[in-house]
Design a protein around this nucleic acid. Structure first.
Lengths: 342, 342
DNA sequence: TTTCCCACGTTAAACGTTTAACGCGGGAGA
DNA sequence: TCTCCCGCGTTAAACGTTTAACGTGGGAAA
């Protein structure tokens, strides 16, 4: 009978099957030849005792285990959870487990979450930094653990990185709006202290400059913008409102939509809206939202693949992967009503 | 200098600080009095070597560690990720780490994910089952690990459970629709093989019976309904369409909205819509969606608290916690246009 | 019959911690 | 001066695995 109090260990199984612990291990890991009779006895014992190997012990013995640490800024953002879901799928396929930590959007906790993750002695890490100074890099570089930086790129980094083509995708959205006849574009951002956001801004500004459009206005509204930031509502109820808005993240897209709704602006008749990320709800609004679709799945797969290569010992120079976004044109964008210009 | 190849251990620190490993441990865990001079030496060594204790070894030594396993059906559903975010917050406060596994909405993998989680020897588990037979219960009961079942309740269960008042909340939504004058209500569900969904249906049906309304129609559309299930579109383009829809999950709410949009039904003029769960996007649609708000945060907190009590040794009979939902009335519900009845 | 080898099992060490038990030196009380 | 105790550190065992090294018994080749 299994003891209820303590976990049953390989020793209990060995005892029950009348063999040594080494033999049990050999059966479980199928490492050495074990006679059929003994194997059967061991398997029986495992089943009746409900034996499960202890990962901590395995890991301790083997030095490094099949664990990947994933550090994200937040678990409340569908963009991050989608990536996690994708990484989890990759991990399952390759026989890894992932451990997820959330560091918070503001770099407040400092590196405590990273350290917690590292204390698992993971075989590798995938990091989505919450700022682009990425002080954590020094901690990671002090270990020999390979890691991949995803989505938000730090200023400088000795590791593989995977990100989307922020400038190009944002410029493409601006170009599309320009082709519809828009000239006054408002860019709504979380914060310009994030490199990917800055790149998106830069893409739009560069396009406008090149196309002879006025310099677009940029509004920073912070990370918690789902409920519709007051600053934007104010701007939309004022005079000389923009004819098009580009929202640089999914939460901003949502917030912008609420502001437009609150301030009585009609989409797309009064103001056109283009949002980053593409979620199901954007296709269920009326009108559906024109979206810059980030290749979330591809980001997960690529970063996983990079990490696996590094774990396998690849020692080439760090690679910088950039993935293209696609613009999904829907009903929230239309030519501006010329009447409202003057 | 730290060896680059292997992780630095407590022994390296001891060597660098010229003390025994026990002393290092005592400094790190501040267990016994250590003189200031020695403490300083040790802390210096820790800092220069970038020492991080190895969780696997700690856990092995201590038998059971501050880990909670969380098993959810899917990481693609914001309801589950919101709960995870909340549990993570609780865990951080109490000095625990959580390890998340996703089992898939269909009970296909069987119990392999659960076993993977259990092999971490967690101090406790929080489970959101993916079916209500909950075969995993036997595996869990075979261990001495306390666990809490959340959201979807199995047929019978010897553990603490936390769920919402499904019947009452659904009945309340039906009652509200009835008070507006609706008589033909369509219930759209993922699958009736889930207890919480069945309870919601039952609540609506019971109310209709009691209020003398016709028996509401129930449509099962499966788990991946965000894109708008064809069966629903078909029903909405037919004759004798319902005047109100109650969508029993967030994905169904989204899917229903798309179907309504596709089939040219106006919300709320042609059809009223009430949806389960309340996310930011539901307030950004036009009209905003009337929602049955599940107390996600409270579910997380309550289940965490139950688990902590059990871990602390509480051995009373299993408790069944039920939390109330609130109906947030918004623009997607209105009295039916009587003209369309005939 | 002797020798060798092979197939199958076992022994024991090691992984990095924690902690009970022990040692030791010096100050205080007798 | 002798004893005792207390504060500070160390030693060593233990946690559950894996695996290299080591029996051991029997069959085949000589």
């Amino acid at each position: 009978m299994a003891r209820k109090t303590a976990q049953i260990s390989i020793r209990d199984v060995a005892e029950a099957a009348q063999v040594s612990v080494a033999t049990v291990s050999n059966v479980v890991r199928s490492r050495k030849n074990v006679s059929d009779a003994v194997r059967a006895r061991v398997n029986d014992a495992i089943r009746t005792l409900n034996y499960l190997p202890d990962r901590a012990a395995m890991q301790l013995r083997e030095g490094r285990n099949r664990i990947i640490g994933v550090l994200v800024p937040s678990l409340d953002n569908p963009f991050f959870t989608a990536i996690i879901a994708c990484l989890e799928e990759c991990a399952r396929k390759d026989g890894y487990d992932i451990i997820v930590g959330s560091a918070g959007e503001e770099p407040a906790y400092g590196s405590s979450r990273l350290k917690a993750l590292l204390s698992w002695r993971p075989a590798g890490m995938i990091i989505l930094p919450n700022d682009d100074y990425f002080a954590d890099a020094s901690i990671l570089d002090a270990t020999s653990i390979p890691y991949v930086v995803l989505d938000r790129l730090p200023h400088s980094c000795m590791a593989d990185t995977v990100a989307v083509e922020n400038e190009q995708s944002a410029a493409e959205a601006a170009a599309y709006l320009a082709s519809l006849g828009h000239r006054r574009i408002l860019v709504v951002a979380t914060t310009l202290s994030l490199a990917n956001i800055r790149e998106r801004c830069a893409g739009i500004i560069a396009f406008c400059a090149q196309a002879g459009l006025p310099v677009p206005q940029v509004l920073e509204v912070g990370h918690h913008a789902e409920e519709g930031p007051a600053a934007l509502t104010e701007m939309l109820t004022g005079r000389n409102i923009p004819t098009a808005i580009i929202a640089l993240t999914n939460s901003i897209t949502l917030g912008a939509l609420r502001c437009l709704y609150q301030s009585g602006c009609n989409v797309p008749d009064d103001v056109s809206l283009v949002g980053y990320d593409d979620y199901a709800w954007m296709r269920a609004t009326q009108p559906p939202i024109t979206a810059i679709r980030q290749p979330v799945e591809e980001m997960g797969v690529q970063s996983w693949s990079r990490l696996m290569h590094r774990i396998a010992g690849e020692s080439t120079a760090p690679m910088q992967v950039r993935l293209p976004c696609t613009l999904a044109v829907r009903g929230s964008t239309a030519p501006p009503k010329t009447g409202k210009m003057s």
